[in-house]
Design a protein around this nucleic acid. Structure first.
Lengths: 353, 353
DNA sequence: CTGAAAGCGCTAACAG
DNA sequence: CTGTTAGCGCTTTCAG
């Protein structure tokens, strides 16, 4: 195990030059072998591979990026407080889907969690672009008048939005076909059970999907000749859900017999609020959530909810973005399937009264 | 608004050369201004800053990394299936804490979610190191005989572990003082309520913290002159929790009057399993979880559990790693406080029988 | 105080 | 088939 030949810099990590030296070839040959370019004899190829393996060498991401302007990393900026982030596995699922698409291509995902302040968010995107840290970004949760679409365009930062774009924004986006399917099924389910007084508890209306869903609920109810008995716009939190239920329970004869909630967290909180008010779910009140979090299976009664394939959505978004970057090797990805109702135990026939 | 002076490459993004040209100085001057090195006159400084701002320029991360061997990014490899990831906000919290420490220093976090296969995990770390994509990594969930400590050492990849190291491993790590405090409080609480038959449902014993906690429970019970009525080792899943409760309920006279679960998800599942067996919580059975997820406040009865300040742990880990990298500017971070019991509604006096 | 020039590790022409 | 060489955008001596 005598020391290596001509003094390799003792401590620093191996470079392409070291590999070339060990293999007894030129750096160009090493480069070609690593990048699978043709025009290299098999014996040479083997020697290079052996040398690279021996030295535990892979091309430096920085050098490759500097040379080719490809960083092989995608970015994602999440603008939410830690509290909301953790109450809702939404992002974990999305990221997991994105990663599953990226991993085989050896792309990385650069994550930025910023607070709610819009300026921090803008700054994050700006740096990602200006510093050329990523090849593109994945956007989520588009808001009404979302500034990010303009931003990424000005930044010339390739971007794909997960979900429903704001207006006719020509930004590439992925979403499941039949976005309204889940809510339609949900309402159909309730109507079939005899419910007529149906309330809707929504999330903050600055999000595009929030208003969209409220409209779907309203139009779908009207197709059944109904109007929502109550519409509450809140904050997607347990507190707001509890408050909403409290408010709706007041005049008992006007109380809804079923409530649709904007997400599962609110729905579960709503169920418990009802219970504390002496109402049994589903006997006195039916409840439907949205998202189908694991939580829904854990609680009692198990939650009837609308399932979205968020992970698949992440996969599709990553795939789309990779396509934009002309990254071959990103095989086709199955389209995310429409949201659909999962009937469990929190819905039942309308109370007799 | 006439076209820029001598043909700047029309479409490509601005470089330091462009900024220098616009400011009418040399690239060296621009570099010095940006990096806050002294020896630049104020007027020059202003001109450079104005030019950089006008061109929306920040130094390319790739070039900086190539030159200085600092990527200003940290890595985190999460080896878990998407399912486990989402059932447990643990990582979301941790990441959120890490980010909050990184953001002010403009460090990025490169995330890799790999499956359960150990080889995928090793590969991920190896690439992170060999490609010099990150300056260091944060490790979580150390396992018995964890190969990653050796790995990062061989890779010369600066690393900090979140949580309890395996054996005396000399890897830098952060953890709250008084790791056993929460469980001790929990058991004290139960004993005070008169419980004598106390069971423990643990997670997979390949994790270091899992075995540690079981030992704490056992030794703490024995200090009270007790032995666990049952110890079940499962998978941290709702299924296993349900099964465990089913098994323990069998001979009613040997049934535990209280169960400690390894995490909140199991605890909630356990409560519902008990309910389906006709047992009321906390009247017939007391239940305590671990982690204090938001979930615990949503369910009925609200869950008594052990709270850990995971976000703070993430902050501390990032801070420690930054310190290892000799990154100044990482101010001191408060030490994570010991786990502590949060008493809510799922525990009560031992049943009379 | 300011600028010219030498690389960091790699890829892509171009010559042999 | 294989080697030489010119930069990619930046920082950093070292001279002016």
């Amino acid at each position: 195990m005598a020391g290596t030949a001509r003094g390799r810099k003792s401590s620093g990590k191996a470079t392409i030059t070291d590999v070339a030296a060990v293999a007894g070839v030129s750096v160009a040959a090493v480069s070609k072998v690593i990048n699978g370019k043709g025009g290299i004899s098999e014996p040479t190829r083997q020697r290079v591979l052996a040398a690279a393996d021996k030295l535990q060498w892979s091309p430096s991401a920085a050098a490759v990026a500097l040379r080719g302007a490809r960083t092989r990393a995608l970015g994602m900026v999440v603008g939410r407080g830690a509290d909301l982030l953790t109450a809702d596995p939404h992002f974990a699922l999305l990221i997991s889907g994105v990663e599953s698409e990226l991993a085989p291509l050896d792309y990385g995902l650069l994550l930025h969690i910023v607070g709610e302040e819009p300026e921090a968010e803008v700054r994050a995107y700006r740096r990602l672009a200006e510093e050329r840290r990523v090849d593109g970004v994945i956007l989520t949760e588009s808001r009404i008048g979302d500034p990010r679409f303009d931003l990424v365009r000005r930044l010339r930062l390739p971007a794909v939005l997960v979900g429903r774009p704001w207006q006719e924004d020509p930004i590439p986006h992925v979403q499941a076909a039949g976005q309204d399917a889940g809510l339609r099924e949900a309402i159909g389910h309730l109507v079939e059970l005899g419910h007529r007084r149906i309330a809707y508890v929504s999330g903050p209306e600055d999000k595009v999907h929030t208003t969209f869903r409220r409209k779907v609920v309203e139009s779908c109810l009207s197709e059944h000749g109904l109007r929502p008995s109550h519409v509450v716009v809140g904050e997607f939190t347990a507190q707001d859900a509890t408050a909403a239920v409290g408010r709706m329970a007041e005049p008992a004869d006007d109380r809804p017999t079923a409530i649709l909630f904007g997400n599962d967290t609110m729905a579960v909180a709503g169920i418990n609020a009802a219970r504390r008010l002496g109402l049994d779910v589903p006997r006195d009140l039916s409840v439907i959530g949205y998202d189908d979090l694991p939580l829904g299976e854990l609680v009692y009664p198990r939650l009837t909810t609308v399932n979205q394939d968020i992970e698949q959505l992440g996969r599709a978004a990553a795939n789309e973005l990779l396509g934009l970057l002309e990254e071959s090797g990103a095989g086709p990805v199955a389209a995310p399937r429409p949201p659909r109702l999962v009937v469990r135990e929190s819905t039942g026939p309308v109370p007799a009264s």
